[in-house]
Design a binder for these strands. Structure first.
Lengths: 100, 100
DNA sequence: CTATTATATAGCATATATGCGATATGCCTG
DNA sequence: CAGGCATATCGCATATATGCTATATAATAG
C-alpha cells in the first residue's frame, strides 16, 4: 500500500533551471534557445514602461493584439525587420552583434 | 551645341551618402534599412577572419553556398534563429538589444 | 453578481525566410 | 587557351513568420 497524502514538492522554475544548468549539453541548448525569451521579455518590459496594453502596442505596429501576445510568450522567431519596427516604436535603436 | 567630353564626376558612395544624410527623412529611412547591410558585412567579416569560403561556411551551417551569398549581399531579413546559428558557428554570442 | 478590460490561444491565410540546384561570371594558374 | 575555384544570381520548393478572427481565460470595476 502506498503512503497517502505524500506531498510531492516541485522545485521553483529557478531551482529547476539552476539544476539543469549543471549539465553542459543543457547549458548549450538553453543558450541557443533563450534569445527568444530574452527578446520577449525585453518587449514586455518596454511596453509596460510605456503603460501600453497589447492592443495599443499592436495598433502602433499595425497589427493585432494576438500577435503581440505571441511575441511576448516567447513563441516568436523574430525577423530583424520586425525587431527594427519595434525599436522604432519605442524610439530605440536596434543593436545586433556577435560578441566574444 | 553642347560641350563635348564634359566629364561628369560622380561622387563616391561615401560622399553621396553624406549628402543624403543631411535630409532627415532619408536618415530615418536609411537607419531602418541599414541593419541588413550591417549584419551582412559583419558575417562577411567573420567569415574572412576564419579564412572560410562561402561554400565552407555553408557546410558548417548545413546549407548551400548560394544561401551565404544571399546573406552577404544584404538581401536577407534574418530570423533570430538563423543569427543564433551563425553566432554559434563563430563561437560568438548573439546580442540583440533596443538601446536609447 | 455583471460588465469591462487585458491577455492567451487556436485555426487559418498569406507573405517571406530558408534551402536547393543550375548556371553565369570573374579570377587565377598551368 | 583550358580547367578549377570563389562568388553571384536565378527559379523554384518548402518551412515558417506574420496577420487576422474568434474565442477562452483572468483580473478588475461597478
Amino acid at each position: 500500500m502506498e503512503k497517502k497524502h505524500k506531498k510531492i514538492v516541485y522545485p521553483s522554475f529557478e531551482q529547476y533551471l539552476a539544476q539543469q544548468m549543471k549539465n553542459k549539453a543543457f547549458r548549450k541548448a538553453y543558450k541557443e534557445e533563450s534569445h527568444r525569451l530574452e527578446i520577449a521579455y525585453r518587449i514586455l518590459q518596454l511596453r509596460k514602461q510605456q503603460r501600453l496594453s497589447q492592443k495599443e502596442l499592436a495598433q502602433k505596429l499595425n497589427t493585432t493584439q494576438s500577435v503581440i501576445a505571441r511575441m511576448e510568450a516567447g513563441q516568436q522567431n523574430f525577423t530583424t525587420d520586425t525587431l527594427q519596427k519595434i525599436a522604432s516604436i519605442f524610439n530605440r535603436e536596434l543593436k545586433i552583434d556577435f560578441v566574444k
